[in-house]
């Protein structure tokens, strides 16, 4: 490349940056601005009526793990908070796993239909998005509740004598979240599987791989980007889920999202709410880092043979 060409290339790259600068600045502000406010609030003192007092305080951050005894003012580990964190992580992981277990066969099915039918199947997958999340969640509740569809049918059939309590527990939250987030798993999996060269299946069988071996050593490693994308799309919003645990989990089975809402509402503890929000962000980031690293390490097909 000549000197003139080189400098011209640089100039056009510079122009590109300049042209996109306004959009980039706006995006940076929109993304980091609110986050910055939350970050600052987490280091302030809580006000009497749910506002903040502009004095530096670590109470918000301390409040994540500890609670102050109202009588003698001593700090002790807040078991309730721990339970909420653990439940959030556990339910989010389970949701990711369930949506993958259900979503993979679904995505495979759609991707292996004739090209003309695929659009129709994808369209069907997206239908739930047309209805408000709240309505859909209430509908799940309607199915699960004591006088709901499942219990009624089971009682009528004589399989059980009395209705089973299925609502307002972790199981109900799990069902709800898996239902809500399933399309988010199916769509990236579909796009990865659609790009998968089906002739590789024959190559795998031809080279003495059994069906399971073809799945493990050919299909999964190749559609891995879809699995990663789907898992992130499901896991991240699951961790911060608010509506589903609120409606299907009842008041007791809170997740981090509900807990944060509580601090900004009835709890009137904005600094704690802000600190919790930052904690959620950290948990998500750390979880993703671990996940991506684990996937990259385990995904080379079992090292060099």
């Amino acid at each position: 490349m000549s000197r003139a060409e080189e400098s011209q290339r640089r100039a056009s790259a510079r122009n590109g940056w300049l042209l996109s600068a306004p959009a980039l600045v706006l995006l940076a502000l929109a993304a980091s601005g609110p986050l910055l406010i939350v970050f600052v609030y987490s280091f302030l003192e809580k006000g009497q009526y749910g506002n903040v007092i502009w004095d530096f305080s670590l109470d918000g951050w301390v409040g994540i793990l500890f609670s102050r005894d109202i009588f003698d003012d001593t700090l002790k580990l807040a078991d309730a908070h721990m339970t909420i964190f653990w439940r959030s992580v556990k339910l989010s992981l389970l949701t990711t796993f369930i949506t993958f277990a259900l979503g993979f066969p679904t995505a495979w099915f759609i991707a292996t239909r004739p090209a003309t039918q695929r659009a129709m199947w994808l369209f069907l997958i997206t239908i739930p998005f047309w209805t408000n999340l709240l309505i859909r969640t209430f509908a799940i509740g309607e199915i699960l509740r004591t006088e709901g569809l499942i219990n009624t049918v089971l009682v009528k059939l004589g399989i059980i004598s009395a209705p089973i309590q299925m609502l307002y527990n972790d199981g109900a939250v799990l069902v709800g979240m898996a239902y809500v987030y399933l399309p988010l798993m199916v769509l990236p999996l579909f796009s990865a599987i659609e790009r998968f060269d089906m002739r590789l299946l024959e190559a795998g069988y031809d080279l003495y791989a059994s069906r399971m071996q073809v799945l493990r050593h050919v299909i999964l490693p190749i559609v891995k980007p879809g699995i990663v994308a789907g898992s992130i799309l499901v896991f991240v919003p699951s961790l911060g889920a608010y509506v589903t645990p609120r409606i299907l989990g009842g008041g007791k089975n809170m997740m981090i999202g509900n807990f944060i809402e509580l601090q900004f509402g009835q709890g009137r503890n904005w600094p704690l709410g802000a600190a919790l929000s930052m904690t959620l962000l950290v948990i998500v980031t750390v979880a993703l880092l671990f996940y991506v690293r684990a996937i990259n390490r385990g995904g080379t097909g079992g090292g060099h043979g």
Binding site: L200, E202, A203, I222, K224, G299, G301
Partner: peptide
């Protein structure tokens, strides 16, 4: 139909 995720050796 070579496996794109594997090296020549693999």
């Amino acid at each position: 139909a070579l496996f794109p995720h594997l090296s020549v050796r693999e």
